[in-house]
């Protein structure tokens, strides 16, 4: 049942228009649970939390309370009442156990509460339920672990993501940084090398390689990388990014002789 038919709903109405629409419908069907939920959501997203709470609590009395639980969870997360938010989300999951956004919010609550282990656990559930996890969520999980200097676990999450999505620079670059942070430049180099073909061995990639080669004391290899990067850059039209790379190449080349 479409409570507010598409033909009635404006394509992009403002909050005021939305409220007017819902209010019109509420005048006709004042005991409709869905309309109270809808108005509660409009208030919630507009930051009018008291009004939102009143409508959502009213909605609970007009039908199955559990249908309101997810939005009550979101509302309480927004107001910082994490414990209440968590309870509502858990209620919702008992009825709809495979609803990934509920796990996303549980992860946010855990993260904002400082419980990174639990946040990562909820994200793992999210990854299991979500058919197409976005690379950014693997990064989010890895960053929480990195913040606690749990590099090995952070790397494991990034590798899990790449096992699911394929090797992608968003995740592998972060893994390279983690390898360096935990004092493993050789492993960082090995990871960076995997990106070479897909990045077309770009000048940026070659200079990153050179930097790692230098760190490992491989001056000849670093010099070759810098030289080929400079040659390529010299043939390309200048963009601000390429001008920055040229400066970086010069700085690295100068470092070869120190």
């Amino acid at each position: 049942m479409l409570l507010v038919p598409a033909s009635v709903a404006l394509a992009h109405p403002g909050q005021h228009d939305q409220l007017q629409q819902v209010n019109r419908h509420l005048e006709q069907t004042p005991t409709d649970q869905d309309l109270y939920i809808q108005r509660g959501i409009i208030y919630s997203e507009g930051g009018q939390y008291d009004a939102a709470l009143a409508d959502l609590l009213q909605a609970q009395t007009l039908g199955e309370p559990v249908l309101v639980a997810f939005q009550l969870g979101v509302l309480h997360y927004r107001t910082g009442d994490f414990e209440v938010a968590r309870d509502y989300l858990q209620q919702y999951l008992q009825r709809f156990p495979n609803y990934p956004p509920a796990y996303d919010y549980l992860a946010r609550i855990a993260r904002d509460s400082g419980d990174y282990d639990l946040a990562v656990a909820h994200l793992q559930t999210y990854f299991r339920l979500q058919e197409r996890p976005n690379p950014g969520l693997y990064l989010a999980a890895a960053r929480m672990l990195e913040e606690r200097r749990r590099y090995q676990e952070a790397l494991a999450i990034l590798d899990q993501g790449q096992a699911t999505l394929g090797v992608v620079p968003q995740l592998q670059r972060q893994a390279v940084a983690l390898e360096r942070a935990r004092g493993q430049p050789e492993l960082a180099l090995a990871r960076l090398q995997t990106l070479g073909p897909m990045l077309g061995e770009s000048p940026a990639w070659r200079l990153d390689m050179a930097e790692l080669q230098l760190e490992l004391g491989h001056r000849d290899r670093a010099a070759a990388m810098i030289r080929s990067a400079r040659e390529t850059l010299a043939q390309q039209r200048p963009t601000p990014a390429r001008l920055d790379l040229q400066q970086r190449a010069e700085a690295l080349a100068a470092g070869l002789h120190q």
Partner: peptide, 15 residues
């Protein structure tokens, strides 16, 4: 609005 019971077309703010 991300709610499985009610919403409006084109208004999702979910990622």
């Amino acid at each position: 609005f991300l709610n499985p019971t009610v919403a409006l077309p084109g208004f999702s703010q979910s990622p």
